[in-house]
């Protein structure tokens, strides 16, 4: 399910079946000219990845808007803010939370996160329409859905 009107209407009718949250962690910045392009590229492909992952496991997962933060922000403080999201989410019967990201700085804070980090190494492709990139998405979606299923 996506956090969109049509899907949410379905969700409300079938809550007991949907127990897993997909919340991508996306850094944002406009400082450092030489890095912006890379971060925005990562943002783009993480969005594609998360949407494809949702499609694979649509009936049991809800892909909510990405948790967005300033790249340089203090991660422990961000975790506190993230917990307010999680508290809200858990008003509903969600049992599993997954946070896909390309931002490896979360790795060090993994233990304090209010859910499961899925850190993906970035792939550099010229063209997101390319066969190569589609293959990358496809393989990663399959592997990550397998990982998620192992929690069910």
């Amino acid at each position: 399910m996506q956090w969109q009107q049509d899907d949410i209407k379905k969700y409300v009718q079938a809550k007991e079946y949907i127990d897993t949250i997909i919340m991508p962690l996306q850094p944002f910045h406009l400082t450092k000219d030489e890095k912006i392009a890379q971060t925005s590229y990562e943002n783009e492909i993480l969005t594609i990845f998360s949407n494809e992952l949702e499609k694979e496991l649509s009936g049991r997962t809800m892909r909510i808007p990405s948790y967005t933060y300033v790249r340089s922000a203090d991660k422990e403080k961000e975790i506190e803010r993230m917990k307010t999201w999680v508290t809200d989410i858990q008003e509903q019967p969600f049992e599993h939370l997954f946070f896909p990201t390309f931002d490896m700085t979360w790795k060090k804070h993994e233990i304090n996160l209010p859910g499961n980090l899925i850190w993906l190494p970035v792939t550099q492709v010229e063209e997101i329409q390319s066969k190569e990139f589609k293959k990358w998405i496809h393989e990663n979606v399959l592997q990550v859905s397998e990982l998620i299923r192992s929690y069910w």
Binding site: M1, K10, Y17, I18, K55, E56, L57, S58, G59, R60
Partner: peptide, 8 residues
């Protein structure tokens, strides 16, 4: 597409 809630 599963006819229950749409997983593959």
């Amino acid at each position: 597409k599963c006819t229950h809630l749409g997983c593959m």
